[in-house]
Amino acid sequence: MSTNPFLVSPDALVTEMRNGVVKIVDASWYLPPQNRDAKAEFLQAHIPGAVFFDQDSVVDATSPYPHTLPSQDHFAQAAGALGIAQTDTIVVYDGAGLFSAPRVWWLFRTFGAVNVRILDGGFPEWKKAGLATESGEASPEECEFTVHFQPQSVVDLPQMRDLVQERQTQIADARSAERFQGLAPEPRPGVRSGHMPGAHSLPYTSLQENGRLKEPEELREAFAAAGIDPNEPVVTSCGSGVTAAVITLALATLNNPQSRLYDGSWTEWGSQTDTPVETGPGE
């Protein structure tokens, strides 16, 4: 059984549910090629008592880029409407195992929730254990979520420009090696292929196995293979800020002293006309 303080096993979650001390969040989200409808799947089956967090709507609606950080008021309103307060014990999961849940785990923590964990293995592991599910819409009792924003957990475009130019902070890119190297086109139109100068390729898939986060020693090996020291500051990035949070979770597991997530990620960087872009294997 994992001793990771950021994960909870299905059995342990069942116990917490019986004690009535946990709020459960379905954070499923999928890329178009995955051909899955997260909300439709939630309506068909989800963990009893779970609410659905829509990662396409709890965003900055004025931004041209996907999954950009919502305003503090918007997040507080969305979380409160789901019946979640910043003081609650929160468990987040997704339908792929470990794909989109870390992003919502990071969001809640960034906006001030203090006890947020991820279901180890996600909904697939829950179903594999033969545990109960329910269907239909959730009907949470609204409450107040008081934001305590953590600006040190996020990087914006101007900051990212400085970091790339200074080359003093490690950058970990969670996209596939093919996209990182510029060998595969980006899925969004108008986005150049390649990576930020000085970035390291660390596909999020290298940090998990069968939808579960790897053990600490295996995580250290993955970081070392990517040329990243997990004991030093790291900025995480990906396509649109979702799977970057898998790296963020791995770094938290290894007690990284300073991990930040580049919210706009490659969609924002690769859409600019003046940001430097490199191809090939990188650092």
Rank of each mutant, 00 (worst) to 15 (best):
A50D: 10
F53L: 01
D54T: 06
V58P: 03
V58N: 13
V58Q: 13
D60T: 08
A61L: 14
A61T: 14
A61D: 12
P64G: 09
P64V: 07
P66C: 08
P66W: 07
H67M: 04
H67T: 06
L69P: 06
L69A: 15
P70I: 12
P70M: 10
P70C: 14
S71M: 07
Q72Y: 08
Q72S: 14
D73R: 14
A76D: 09
Q77V: 12
Q77L: 13
A78F: 11
A78I: 10
G80W: 04
G80N: 13
A81S: 15
L82P: 05
G83W: 09
A85W: 02
A85S: 15
A85K: 14
Q86D: 11
Q86V: 06
Q86K: 13
Q86Y: 11
T87C: 10
D88L: 06
D88A: 09
I90P: 01
I90M: 08
I90R: 13
I90K: 12
V91F: 02
V91R: 05
V91I: 09
Y93V: 02
A96G: 10
G97E: 02
F99K: 00
S100A: 12
S100R: 07
S100W: 05
S100G: 04
A101C: 01
P102I: 02
P102N: 07
P102K: 09
R103C: 00
V104F: 05
W106T: 04
W106L: 03
L107N: 15
L107T: 14
F108N: 08
T110Q: 09
T110D: 05
T110S: 13
F111C: 05
G112F: 08
N115P: 01
N115H: 14
V116K: 10
V116E: 06
V116F: 01
R117N: 01
I118C: 01
L119D: 00
D120G: 02
G122D: 04
F123S: 01
F123M: 04
E125P: 00
K127L: 08
A129K: 12
A129L: 01
G130N: 05
G130V: 00
A132E: 11
E134G: 00
S135N: 10
S135K: 04
E137W: 08
A138G: 06
A138Y: 00
A138N: 05
S139Q: 12
S139M: 11
P140A: 11
P140Y: 11
E141M: 14
E141H: 14
E142T: 15
F145Q: 07
V147N: 07
H148A: 15
H148N: 15
F149R: 04
F149C: 02
F149V: 02
Q150Y: 03
P151M: 12
Q152V: 04
S153A: 12
V154W: 05
V154D: 04
V155Q: 09
D156S: 09
D156Y: 12
D156G: 09
L157C: 09
L157Q: 13
